[in-house]
């Protein structure tokens, strides 16, 4: 994969640093902080692209960036500046939703009840009933940013867990990674869905085309996965991600059948109808429940991660439906 195209001053600065190496940049710019404006970084494609690019050093890397930049202090400092703001904004955005939750229920139950608090348009319902072939292709292109590395961010969490929660995460990941059969790897099923509708499944191909919220959704998972401090948020996010997958997946598969798309397109979604009916219980009870039982202080972050997943899904739904149906309200309007 090659470095993406810049989308503004923040991504320009990050890309310059990665392209030339921090040592060769002018000392004055190498050591000045990234200047973040007053606007939200969650819906800012420039900030999110900058962060996505920095995170990819930890996944597949770039052919035109040196591999040892992954742990370069200057590069990490750029990442830290963006992450601090991103995390703060996400926590602020979900604070109200979390205050309305009952405080005493077991965390697993609270997690599985949370998706019912979600509001706004449903891309899955639109894909099911109304979407054209072009819209379905657009949806797959947007989702490719996360789904071609599906479960990779959560795999970073495994060494930070112990006992029951570790075993349950390993069970979940084993299923996501094909259960011993490379042809069942979920990342690969997604790549095959892309190919079946004429998209290029090469990792990172569409990064220059996807919206801010697709980048932000991928980035939230990376931020939660890469920081041990945020392990609770990573697993709470996973629980809601799994719990909001099965029913929408069935609708999306139905929409693909309505349009007569090749079976490989819907196959990924059929698999998730069944798999995520298992995974939501594994994640909510066996992973998050066990984590919180062992370390009660993690409860708050588990719920923060869960609510962040819903929040970003809602914004992403607005971004997509606004594009597919331009009379809908915009993500920026709702976020502010």
């Amino acid at each position: 994969m090659l470095l993406p195209r810049e989308r503004g001053p923040l991504s320009r600065r990050v890309l310059q640093t990665l392209r030339t190496g921090p040592g060769s940049s002018r000392s004055t710019t190498a050591f000045t902080e990234l200047a973040l404006g007053p606007d939200s970084v969650v819906t800012d494609e420039d900030a999110q692209l900058a962060l996505w690019t920095l995170y990819e050093l930890h996944y597949r890397g770039f052919d035109d960036a040196a591999e040892d930049l992954e742990w370069d202090p200057t590069v990490l400092r750029l990442r830290r500046t963006l992450e601090r703001r991103f995390e703060r904004e996400l926590r602020e955005a979900v604070a109200l939703r979390l205050r309305s939750l009952p405080g005493e229920a077991p965390v697993g139950e609270t997690l599985l009840a949370l998706p019912a608090t979600s509001t706004g348009p449903s891309p899955a319902a639109y894909l099911h009933r109304h979407a054209s072939r072009e819209v379905v292709v657009d949806f797959l292109r947007e989702r490719s940013l996360q789904q071609l590395k599906e479960s990779d961010p959560q795999a970073f969490v495994l060494p930070r867990l112990t006992g029951r929660s570790k075993v349950a995460l390993a069970e979940l990941l084993y299923d996501e990674f094909g259960g011993g059969r490379p042809e069942r790897l979920h990342q690969r099923l997604f790549a095959e869905a892309m190919v079946s509708v004429g998209l290029d499944p090469t990792y990172g191909t569409y990064v220059d085309e996807v919206g801010a919220l697709s980048l932000a959704s991928a980035n939230a998972m990376s931020m939660f996965g890469l920081h041990r401090r945020l392990r609770g948020a990573a697993m709470g996010h996973l629980a809601v991600f799994e719990a909001t997958s099965s029913v929408p997946s069935r609708k999306i598969a139905g929409g693909m059948d309505r349009l007569g798309l090749p079976p490989a397109a819907a196959a990924y979604f059929h698999e998730h109808v069944e798999a995520d009916s298992v995974h939501e219980h594994l994640a909510a009870h066996d992973i998050c429940g066990a984590m919180v039982a062992e370390e009660p202080g993690l409860r708050e972050d588990v719920l923060v991660g869960a609510a962040v997943c819903l929040h970003l899904d809602e914004l992403s739904a607005l971004e997509l439906t606004e594009r597919w149906n331009p009379t809908a309200p915009t993500a920026q309007e709702v976020a502010s």
Partner: peptide
């Protein structure tokens, strides 16, 4: 015999 999450529509939580 596999769950496909239809139970959520039967018994909303």
């Amino acid at each position: 015999p596999w769950c496909d999450s239809t139970h959520k529509a039967v018994r909303p939580r």
